[in-house]
Amino acid sequence: MEQQSEKLRFILHCAIFAAITAIMAQIEIPLPLVPISGQTLAVGITATILGSRKGAVAMVCYAAIGAIGLPVFAGFSGGPQVLVGPTGGYIFGFIAAAFVTGYILEKSRFTVPMAMIANTIGMVITLLFGTIQLKYVVELTWGEALAAGVYPFIIVGLIKAFLASWIGITVRNRLVQANVNITSSKNAA
């Protein structure tokens, strides 16, 4: 019975954070090729609170519900064409970023400074995945891909990394204080 309860808790946590990401995706500032959106903030918060495994699974759920056509991506878009389009690499990057961000925190300490480092690395991973796909899908030079897919996001990305760290650690600490089991990690803080 305890194992079923743990599985249900796992599924619910992942579903909740996939939904939060879908909601945050609708907060956007349009740019010519790739909008600035709240998705990356949600990814950082998710990884900081849930850790590597649950964080990555939550982002897989988010990508999957978007892939089947639900309008959960930025600008209320959805469908497989988004995943293979100019911005799809960023969505795939969310999965890797959530895993790496959570992993770094699990192997160190769940503190705001460590979360800031982990979320900054997560931001770089997302930008790397996104820029590579953007370059090849839109047939840009590396300079054009960096200008469209990285440079506009550096400052706002660092701000979002700080916010994800602060919000994520604050919420995580409150959940731990309330004795809410958010991860099964040994380093669950």
Rank of each mutant, 00 (worst) to 15 (best):
R9F: 02
A96N: 08
R53S: 10
R174D: 10
M24Q: 05
L83T: 02
A47N: 03
T87D: 09
T126I: 15
I117R: 00
T21M: 02
R53T: 13
F73I: 07
P152V: 03
N119Y: 11
A189M: 10
A58L: 03
A64G: 12
I11F: 14
G157I: 03
V60L: 15
F110C: 09
T48M: 02
T46A: 00
A15Y: 03
E106Y: 06
R172M: 08
R174K: 15
I132A: 05
Y103W: 14
F73Y: 14
V43D: 01
I49K: 09
A56G: 00
L175S: 09
F73M: 07
G168Y: 11
L83D: 01
G149R: 05
S77H: 14
E106M: 01
G168N: 03
G93K: 01
C14V: 13
T111W: 02
S77P: 11
V150S: 04
T40V: 15
A63D: 01
G51R: 07
L158I: 05
G143C: 07
L175H: 02
T87V: 09
T48D: 04
A98M: 03
E144P: 04
Q4H: 11
G102Q: 09
G122W: 11
E139R: 06
K7M: 13
A63H: 08
A74E: 12
L50H: 07
Q39R: 09
L8D: 06
Y103H: 12
F153H: 02
I27R: 08
R174Y: 12
G130K: 10
M114V: 14
L127C: 08
A97R: 10
A19L: 13
A15I: 02
T111H: 11
A118T: 01
L163V: 13
T126L: 15
Q133N: 06
